[in-house]
Each structure stands twice: as structure tokens, then as C-alpha cells.
Design a protein around this nucleic acid. Structure first.
Length: 476
DNA sequence: ATGTCC
């Protein structure tokens, strides 16, 4: 649908000299509400309000905007919270494979007045604020962009009492169920009659405030869906070279289901809302803008923590539904389940100190803690057990990490080359674009070699039947 | 990452 040309948009406001911030949003809403005044008139008046907000402070139409502008001007005069001149040092794993941009972002994070300790995982790359693969321990505060946009993004693994031979013989049936029991695509959810029920829908945090309450219906529709990007659900063969007693798995090969997804629209909306709020409440110098933090003893900080926790429970519930549905459809016995968040913040003790540990694309690897580190659709993933290494703040990588950007991958990898790689590895793929091609990722073995001090490998998972979101670029 | 707000 085309946008009517008489509507004032962000570009119009920018042209008038409005800059991003709270007043910007007020200006957009004011213009939207008073469209009947006509675009020309609105533009002229908006320019006038910007030039002299004091004159409009009590105006019926522009009063709210004028006051927002006055407030913004007053806020701009407040000096930003200074960063420390020298940041605390931090451990870097697999340094030679980490892009300089990720290092630079981590350097800035370590200069935050609340920073206690940090570490960069061997799959690290640049993100918003904290790099992906960045681990940051801070004192009594939480950084929304230190958790990431996809709050609670996680891995979940079900190990079935099904031998490899059965999977090979009934490949078509597994493919059919993988399509039937999963749902992919940005914005996609289930129709009312398809929706799954889950305990998480009764979580009291959905009633914590009107903002979160408004997200519940879409969250319900998207519960049990996987979304897009690098998210997947796949069957593969997991091999235990030796029996694992804590898990109760004898040595051998088993069919397993591995899923990677997060909190969908719910978490993304929460992340966006509280990042914006944090930036309004926590003024940092421009290079640290996206690291705005909320004190845990403030109302806003507690609200974010509660909303983040909800998004985490919701992401877990989505995996639970996927795994439950699949086990039921297959009539499979589940021998073991393993799962772990890799975009989240935790209250932990580090070197005897109470800290808030942000892992943004990093696997928790406390002593004895199980985690899953995927490779790519044709490279193995690993079931690992953490070693509790203090220097890594008990963390490890959350995957292989990209070696090519999405655009670079689409430009340089051919569909034939991707097909050949899949065939060579005996992998059947449903969906996915060239930006998710195995060649776009780093070599997982190199990444694992850089973190032998952080985790030990318990079992190796080899993908065989993979589903990802359809390639958007082919639908155009 | 998300049905894309600035």
C-alpha cells in the first residue's frame, strides 16, 4: 500500500531540522493527528515550533511538542556521564580472527563507569553497542544492547532413541514433519486455531505494564515459531565418543533435533523500547551511546529486567513447543534435552564479586554447565561442557561466526556452489538464502581450537536435514 | 534479529 503523500514522515521532519529523540516522535504523532491542517501548513508550523518552542508551550495543538523540545534542549545541556580514560583489560580468544571493529567496541565497553570485567569470544564481530560474541560484567546495572535485540535467543537439543539407519530409511517422513511442525519467516505466526498453549502465557510479567501487556497477543501467535535470519530447526546425528554419565547417554550415535531461535517480535519490541528509554535516562559520550545502561535499583532497570526475563522464558517456551510437537509427531522417546540462552544477562559471582554478566552471542560455560555451539548447516556443532574459566567470565562462543557479511555472501557465492557443498556433505536443505551458505561462516574447528580452555567437547552433532526461513530475495 | 518509525 502506498503512503499518502500528504502525510508528514521522518524525512520531512529531518529536512526541517528535527533530530532523533523523544521530541521527534511527538512531532510525528502530532503531525499524524492533525493531517486535516494540510501538509504545507503543518510543515510551516512545525518549523516555527522548532525555532521558538517557548512561544507554543501552551498551544492547543503544538503545546506537547513545544514542551518536549524545551525538555530536550535542557537535557542536551547536561554533560554526558564520562567514560574512564583507560578501560579495564579483557581476555580475547582467537584474536587473529576477530575484526578490529569488534575490538574497538569492546574497548569502549570496558571504559563504562560500571564495567567490571569483559571478554571477547573467538566468533566475535561488530554489533550495536556491545559486539556479538562480547561478554561484559558490570556492577548493579543492565545494558539493553548488551543483551541484544533478540533477547533470550537460544539453542535447544533433543536426543532421540532413534538410530541413524531409521532416519536414513525414513528420510521423507522426517522431512515432512520438519515442514509440518515448524514455522519460519519474519512476522509470521500461527492462526488462532493453530496456536499452541503454554505455561508462559500465564506469566504475570505480561501484566507488568501496558506496554508489555500490548505485546501478548502477537507473542501468543508467534509462540513456537522460529523467525528468520540465522535461525533454524534441523535433524542431525549426534555422536558420543564415550558414555556421558550426567546426561545418562551411552556412547554411540543418535538422531537429534537441534533448534536455534529467540523471542521473536516480543523480545525485539522490548529491546527497542528499553534501549530507547536507557538512552534517554543514561547520557553517554557518542561512541558509547548504544551502551546506555539502567541501574538495577531504578524503576526502569527493574522493569527491563522483568521484561527481559519474560522474553527469555518465552524463547524457551517456543523451543519447548517445537520439540514437544516433533517428539509427539514422531512418537519418539527423548533420551535427553539440553538448552542454553546465548543472548541474555545473568546475576553471577565473578572473582568473589556480585556482577551482572551480559552475554551477547556467547554461550554460558560455567564449570560443568552444558551448552550447544553450532557450526553451520554443513559443519558439525558441539555439545560442550563449560570449564568455568574466570578470564572468559565462564563463557564460550555461540557458533562459528560469520566470515562474510550477508551482502558479501549474496554477491560472491553462487547457488550452484552452495548446492554442491550441501550435496558433498549429504545435507538436505529446506529454505535459506545464499547469505546463510556454509561458506559465509568461519571454520568451526578453528573457533573451537581457540577455546579449549573454556569448554570440553562432549559430543559432535552433524546436520543432515535443515530448515531455515525462505530466501526473501527470491520472492521479490 | 525484527514485518523495518526517527
Amino acid at each position: 500500500m502506498n503512503t499518502p503523500t500528504n502525510v508528514i514522515n521522518s524525512e520531512d521532519l529531518m529536512a526541517l531540522g528535527y533530530t532523533p529523540g523523544r521530541a521527534f516522535g511527538v512531532a510525528l504523532r502530532t503531525a499524524g493527528k492533525h493531517q486535516r491542517l494540510g501538509k504545507e501548513t503543518l510543515l510551516a508550523q512545525l518549523a516555527d515550533v522548532l525555532a521558538a518552542p517557548e512561544a507554543y508551550a501552551a498551544h492547543a495543538v503544538y503545546g506537547k511538542l513545544a514542551n518536549a523540545l524545551i525538555e530536550a534542549a535542557a537535557m542536551a545541556d547536561i554533560a554526558p556521564i564520562p567514560l574512564r580514560e583507560a578501560g579495564t583489560g579483557y581476555a580475547v580468544y582467537g584474536e587473529s580472527h576477530i575484526e578490529p571493529g569488534a575490538r574497538a567496541q569492546m574497548d569502549v565497553a570496558m571504559q563504562l563507569p560500571v564495567a567490571v570485567a569483559g571478554a571477547l569470544m573467538p566468533d566475535a564481530h561488530q554489533g550495536y553497542g556491545l559486539p556479538i560474541g562480547g561478554v561484559l560484567a558490570v556492577d548493579n546495572a543492565v545494558i539493553p544492547y548488551g543483551v541484544g535485540v533478540d533477547i533470550g535467543c537460544r539453542m535447544a537439543l533433543s536426543i532421540y532413541d532413534i538410530p541413524e539407519t531409521f532416519f536414513v530409511e525414513h528420510h521423507a517422513r522426517f522431512k515432512r514433519e520438519l515442514i509440518a511442525q515448524t514455522r519460519f519467516g519474519a512476522g509470521h505466526g500461527f492462526k488462532p486455531h493453530e496456536r499452541a498453549d503454554h505455561q508462559v502465557l500465564t506469566d504475570e510479567a505480561f501484566g507488568m505494564n501496558p506496554f508489555v501487556a500490548n505485546l501478548k497477543d502477537k507473542a501468543w501467535a508467534q509462540l513456537g515459531t522460529s523467525g528468520g535470519g540465522n535461525h533454524f530447526v534441523e535433524f542431525g546425528i549426534i555422536e558420543f565418543p564415550a558414555a556421558d554419565e550426567p546426561l545418562g547417554i551411552p556412547a554411540g550415535k543418535y538422531l537429534a533435533l537441534l533448534s536455534h531461535s529467540g523471542s521473536r517480535g516480543l523480545g525485539a519490541t522490548i529491546a527497542g523500547h528499553y534501549t530507547k528509554l536507557a538512552k534517554e535516562l543514561c547520557h553517554l559520550p557518542s561512541e558509547a551511546r548504544n551502551l546506555a545502561y539502567l541501574g538495577l535499583d531504578t524503576h526502569a532497570g527493574q522493569e527491563y529486567w522483568q521484561a527481559m526475563t519474560l522474553a527469555g522464558s518465552y524463547a524457551s517456551a517456543s523451543h519447548d513447543i517445537i520439540h514437544r510437537k516433533m517428539a509427539a509427531a514422531l512418537g519418539a522417546e527423548v533420551l535427553a534435552r539440553v538448552e542454553n540462552h546465548h543472548n541474555f544477562a545473568w546475576k553471577e559471582t565473578w572473582n568473589g564479586q556480585e556482577v551482572v554478566v551480559h552475554r551477547k552471542g556467547a554461550t554460558p560455560a560455567g564449570k560443568g554447565v552444558l551448552g550447544i555451539i553450532p557450526g553451520s548447516m554443513t559443519a558439525p556443532g558441539f555439545l560442550v561442557r563449560g570449564k568455568g574459566e574466570a578470564a572468559s567470565i565462564s563463557s564460550a562462543s555461540h557458533g562459528a561466526g560469520r566470515q562474510m557479511s550477508r551482502t558479501q555472501a549474496i554477491k560472491t557465492i553462487s547457488r550452484d556452489a552452495m548446492k554442491a557443498t550441501l550435496k558433498q556433505h549429504g545435507v538436505t536443505l529446506i529454505g535459506a538464502g545464499l547469505d546463510e551458505a556454509p561458506m559465509a561462516y568461519k571454520d568451526i574447528h578453528t573457533v573451537m581450537a581457540a577455546q579449549t580452555a573454556l569448554v570440553e567437547v562432549v559430543a559432535t552433532f552433524t546436520p543432515r536435514l535443515v530448515r531455515m526461513a525462505d530466501d526473501g530475495s527470491r520472492e521479490d
